[in-house]
Simulated assay, not measured.
Amino acid sequence: MKKTAHDYHDLQQSIDSLIGKFGLQKTIEVIDSLTSNTELTTQDKEKVKLLLVFIISQSIEVFDLKEENFYTSTVQEYREARMSCYYLLKKYTDSSYAKIGESFKQSKRAILYNYHKCDEILSIPQFYKPFVEKFKILENNIINFIAKLN
């Protein structure tokens, strides 16, 4: 039977294996890096631009889309992929809704709507399993990318 929820025992085993592989000092550095470097500020303009390009390319890959239709298609998968991009950009940068909208040629209002729609969907994942699975993969990729950028 597959375990669905992790507990502190699982966490401790994972930390122990990290320590065994990298040593105590490096493990602490990795954990500190992950906890303190999960957001980019607008002062890091070049990093935010890199993150934007990365998020778009990853969402195209994770949602299995065609790049040429990404910005214009009204098919649900494309809309969900764009919505994920808006949400993750807002969550992991301090960019405004208007600034995110500029990048996608959308209004501030459209970004705001999609951000809250995504937040609502994520609050009831049992009803949106395929989307939530893709979103989690995308978010994990983004977190790893930000950690490497910083």
Rank of each mutant, 00 (worst) to 15 (best):
L50I: 01
R79F: 04
A110D: 14
K47N: 06
E120C: 10
S96M: 09
M1G: 09
D94V: 07
A5T: 03
T93I: 07
D44T: 07
Q12H: 05
L18R: 00
L11H: 01
G101N: 09
E80T: 02
T93V: 09
F104E: 02
D32G: 11
S17E: 13
E80C: 06
I31Y: 03
S36D: 09
T41M: 03
S123L: 05
G23D: 13
P125G: 08
E29F: 12
I15L: 13
T93C: 08
I56Y: 01
I28Q: 07
Q25L: 13
V62N: 05
E77N: 12
K66P: 00
S96R: 05
Y78T: 07
Y86L: 01
S57Y: 05
L122D: 04
K117Q: 13
K21A: 07
Q43G: 05
S123A: 15
S96G: 07
T38V: 11
E77I: 05
G20Q: 15
T4R: 08
T42A: 10
A98N: 11
V75A: 15
E29G: 08
D44A: 14
E77V: 07
S14R: 14
Y115D: 09
Y92A: 03
Q25P: 01
E46K: 11
D44P: 01
T4E: 14
F127P: 02
G20P: 03
Y97E: 00
A5K: 05
Y92R: 07
K105I: 10
T4M: 10
D64M: 10
D32F: 12
M1L: 13
Y97M: 14
D10P: 00
G23K: 10
D7C: 06
Q12A: 11
D7K: 04
N114C: 04
I111V: 15
I15G: 04
T38I: 09
L122G: 03
E80I: 05
V53M: 10
L18H: 02
D16P: 01
Y86E: 04
K3G: 03
V48N: 01
H9R: 06
A98R: 15
I60R: 08
E68M: 00
M1F: 04
Y87H: 12
S123M: 08
I56F: 05
